[in-house]
C-alpha cells in the first residue's frame, strides 16, 4: 500500500506557479511561437520562403548589419563612459552617493519617448545644439545632426548609459575593499591592485552591463524612429513597416524571428555567464536587481 503523498513545505508552494505560468504561456510563449510559425508558412505550405525573400532583398541584410553595428558601438561607448563613472560613484559616500544614484535612476525610469523627444528638440535646426556651436563660432551654418546619425548615437548612448551603470555599480558595491588593502600590504603597486583585484572582481558587472545594453539596443524602435532621420533604419523599424504598412505578416514574422533568435541566444548566454543566483544581501531592489529586468 502506498502512503498518501507526504506533506513538505516545498510541495505547497509549487502549485503557486500554475497561474503565472499559464498567463506567460498564453500571452508570451504562444505569441512568440506564433511569430516563428507564421514566418515558416507564407500562404503555400510550410517552408523557408519568407526567409529566402528576406535575404534576397538586400534591405534586410543592410538593416540587420546596421542594427548590429549600432548595438555594438553603443555597448562599447557605454562601457568606456560608464566604467570610470561607476567607479567614482561606488566610492562616493552619504548624500553625494544618493544624489548620483538619483541622477542615474531618474533617466532610467523616464520613458524613452520623453527622452528621445528631448534630444529631438536639442538637435533640431534651431535647437540649442546648433545655437551653441554657432555662438562659439565653431560652425558657420547649422548642422543637420538628425540626418547624420549623430543625434541617434547621442540619444542611444543617453538612453542606455543607466543600463550599463547599474550592473557595474552593483558589482562594484560587492567588492570587498579589504582585498585591495591586502594586495597593497602584499606589495602590489596601485595600478596592479586595480587591474588584478578591482578590474577582475568587477568583470561580472561588465559582462552583465554589456549583455543588457547590447540585447536591449538590438530591439530599439522609438529612438531610431525619432532621431535616426531618413538614413538609418534598425530591425524593429523594418518589422513595423513590414507589418503595419505593407501588411506582409510572413515577412515581418521572419524579420521578427531573426531578432527573436538573436536576442534569445544572447539572453541564454547572459544567464549562463552572468548572475550566479546565490544569496545576495538585501539591497533596495530599485537599484541593482531591477536593472536586469528593465529593458
Amino acid at each position: 500500500m502506498r502512503r498518501p503523498r507526504p506533506w513538505s513545505p516545498e510541495a505547497g508552494y509549487r502549485a503557486w506557479i500554475i497561474l503565472p505560468a499559464l498567463f506567460m504561456l498564453a500571452f508570451f510563449v504562444i505569441p512568440l511561437g506564433r511569430v516563428l510559425f507564421t514566418s515558416l508558412s507564407p500562404a503555400d505550405g510550410i517552408g523557408l520562403g519568407a526567409y529566402q525573400a528576406l535575404f534576397r532583398d538586400a534591405v534586410f541584410s543592410i538593416v540587420l548589419l546596421e542594427t548590429l553595428r549600432i548595438a555594438l558601438m553603443v555597448t562599447l561607448g557605454c562601457l568606456v563612459l560608464a566604467y570610470p563613472v561607476a567607479y567614482v560613484v561606488a566610492e562616493l559616500r552619504g548624500r553625494w552617493q544618493r544624489l548620483a544614484l538619483a541622477m542615474i535612476l531618474l533617466p532610467f525610469w523616464t520613458s524613452a519617448v520623453i527622452r528621445s523627444y528631448a534630444w529631438l528638440v536639442i538637435f533640431q535646426r534651431q535647437g540649442p545644439f546648433n545655437q551653441v556651436l554657432l555662438g562659439l563660432g565653431v560652425i558657420d551654418r547649422p548642422l543637420r545632426p538628425l540626418n547624420s546619425g549623430l543625434a541617434l548615437d547621442v540619444g542611444m548612448l543617453h538612453i542606455m548609459l543607466p543600463f550599463m551603470l547599474l550592473p557595474l555599480l552593483s558589482a562594484m558595491w560587492r567588492i570587498d575593499r579589504r582585498l585591495l588593502l591586502a594586495a597593497s600590504v602584499l606589495g602590489a603597486p596601485p595600478w596592479r591592485q586595480f587591474v588584478h583585484v578591482y578590474l577582475r572582481l568587477s568583470l561580472p558587472g561588465v559582462a552583465a552591463g554589456c549583455a543588457l545594453v547590447f540585447i536591449t539596443s538590438l530591439g530599439f524602435y522609438i529612438t531610431p524612429a525619432l532621431l535616426g532621420g531618413s538614413g538609418t533604419m534598425m530591425v524593429s523599424q523594418l518589422i513595423y513597416q513590414q507589418a503595419s504598412r505593407l501588411l506582409n505578416w510572413p515577412l515581418a514574422s521572419a524579420s521578427g524571428s531573426v531578432l527573436l533568435i538573436l536576442t534569445s541566444v544572447l539572453f541564454v548566454l547572459y544567464q549562463r555567464i552572468g548572475q550566479p543566483r546565490t544569496a545576495r544581501r538585501a539591497r533596495p531592489p530599485v537599484a541593482g536587481d531591477v536593472a536586469e529586468g528593465r529593458a
Binding site: 505578416w249 524571428s257 544567464q271
Partner: peptide, 22 residues
C-alpha cells in the same frame, strides 16, 4: 526563472506582432 525575466529583454516589437493576431 528565465521565463519570467525574458519578457523584459525580448524586443517588444516581436512580442507586439505576435500578440496582435492573437
Amino acid at each position: 526563472a528565465a521565463l519570467f525575466v525574458a519578457p523584459a529583454i525580448i524586443p517588444q516589437m516581436v512580442l507586439a506582432i505576435g500578440l496582435y493576431p492573437l
